[in-house]
Structure formats: structure tokens, C-alpha cells
Simulated scan of single mutants.
Amino acid sequence: MKGLRTNFEKIPNVLVSIDLSSNRFEGEIPDEFGEHGALIGLNLSHNNFIGPIPRSLGNLTNLESLDLSSNMLDGEIPTELTNLNFLASLNLSNNHLEGSIPQENSLIPFQTILMSET
């Protein structure tokens, strides 16, 4: 099944939390996660995701918790994440992120969490 993309039509789009942590998922984080605007929790930690953090995650304006830690993500933290006004928990540690932390709106309180071991 590797490399095969499957759409699951019967999964409701009213999911409020997705926890796919501690699997062996590889490749880039799909942009489609940004289409689930009702999400309040997303945990993709402890996988083998590579590439940048998708800008589409900035569409998850109801998100309260985001954990992308312990992957191999690189690039800069997208400024679109500053749209996450309800975010109470953010963990991007143990990745290969670079650049500065976006200083607008909601990410300012997370400066210490974001910078730890990224």
C-alpha cells in the first residue's frame, strides 16, 4: 500500500481530534489536514514526517492543541500558524526547523516551547 493514496468517503468531517502519533508515517504531512476546520486537537508526533509544516494547518482556526514533535520537519514555521487563536498547546520540538518564530498574535506565548530542541 506504500505510495497509494486512499480517500475514505465515510469518515465524517466533524472529527474534533486526530491522534496519529507514534506510527511510522513517512513523507510530507498532507495539506488535506487543513480541510478539517472543526479539529480542536491534532497530534502527529513521533513519526517520520519530512519537509515543511504545511501552511494549510493555519486553516484550523478552532485548534487548541498541535503536536508535531519528534519528526524530521524542516524549513521555517509558517506565519499561517498565527491564525490559530485558540491554540493552548503547541509542540514542535525535536525537528529540524530553522528561522525565527512568527511574532504575530498567538505564537508569541509559545516561544520557549517552539525553540526547545528544534
Score class of each variant (00 low, 15 high):
residue 99 G to C: 09
residue 44 L to C: 06
residue 111 Q to G: 08
residue 78 P to R: 05
residue 7 N to C: 05
residue 45 S to H: 05
residue 88 A to M: 12
residue 64 E to C: 08
residue 44 L to N: 06
residue 45 S to V: 08
residue 9 E to G: 02
residue 96 H to P: 00
residue 46 H to V: 11
residue 26 E to F: 02
residue 35 E to A: 14
residue 10 K to G: 01
residue 76 E to Y: 06
residue 40 I to C: 07
residue 2 K to V: 15
residue 25 F to L: 15
residue 63 L to P: 03
residue 1 M to C: 10
residue 43 N to W: 02
residue 21 S to W: 00
residue 81 L to K: 01
residue 45 S to T: 07
residue 94 N to Q: 09
residue 56 S to V: 00
residue 109 P to N: 06
residue 54 P to T: 02
residue 95 N to I: 06
residue 30 P to I: 01
residue 20 L to W: 02
residue 37 G to T: 14
residue 1 M to N: 12
residue 86 F to R: 13
residue 99 G to D: 11
residue 42 L to C: 04
residue 108 I to N: 10
residue 23 N to Q: 05
residue 65 S to A: 14
residue 113 I to V: 04
residue 96 H to V: 04
residue 26 E to G: 00
residue 23 N to Y: 01
residue 86 F to D: 14
residue 1 M to Q: 13
residue 38 A to I: 01
residue 11 I to N: 09
residue 61 T to C: 04
residue 94 N to W: 09
residue 1 M to T: 14
residue 57 L to E: 03
residue 93 S to I: 03
residue 88 A to I: 04
residue 108 I to R: 13
residue 96 H to I: 04
residue 79 T to V: 11
residue 111 Q to F: 10
residue 42 L to V: 04
residue 106 S to C: 14
residue 48 N to T: 07
residue 85 N to S: 13
residue 9 E to K: 08
residue 31 D to T: 11
residue 17 S to W: 05
residue 105 N to T: 04
residue 36 H to N: 11
residue 68 L to N: 03
residue 18 I to L: 12
residue 80 E to H: 10
residue 84 L to D: 03
residue 50 I to W: 00
residue 5 R to S: 12
residue 114 L to Y: 01
residue 15 L to S: 07
residue 15 L to M: 12
residue 64 E to W: 01
residue 47 N to I: 12
residue 91 N to T: 03
residue 37 G to R: 14
residue 88 A to Y: 04
residue 21 S to L: 06
residue 58 G to K: 03
residue 3 G to H: 09
residue 69 S to M: 07
residue 101 I to Q: 05
residue 20 L to P: 02
residue 26 E to D: 10
residue 66 L to Y: 03
residue 31 D to S: 12
residue 103 Q to N: 13
residue 81 L to P: 03
residue 61 T to R: 13
residue 110 F to A: 09
residue 91 N to I: 00
residue 1 M to A: 15
residue 47 N to W: 02
residue 37 G to C: 07
residue 21 S to M: 09
residue 104 E to M: 12
residue 63 L to C: 05
residue 69 S to Q: 05
residue 76 E to S: 13
residue 8 F to L: 15
residue 95 N to G: 04
residue 99 G to R: 10
residue 85 N to M: 07
residue 77 I to W: 01
residue 17 S to T: 07
residue 99 G to F: 08
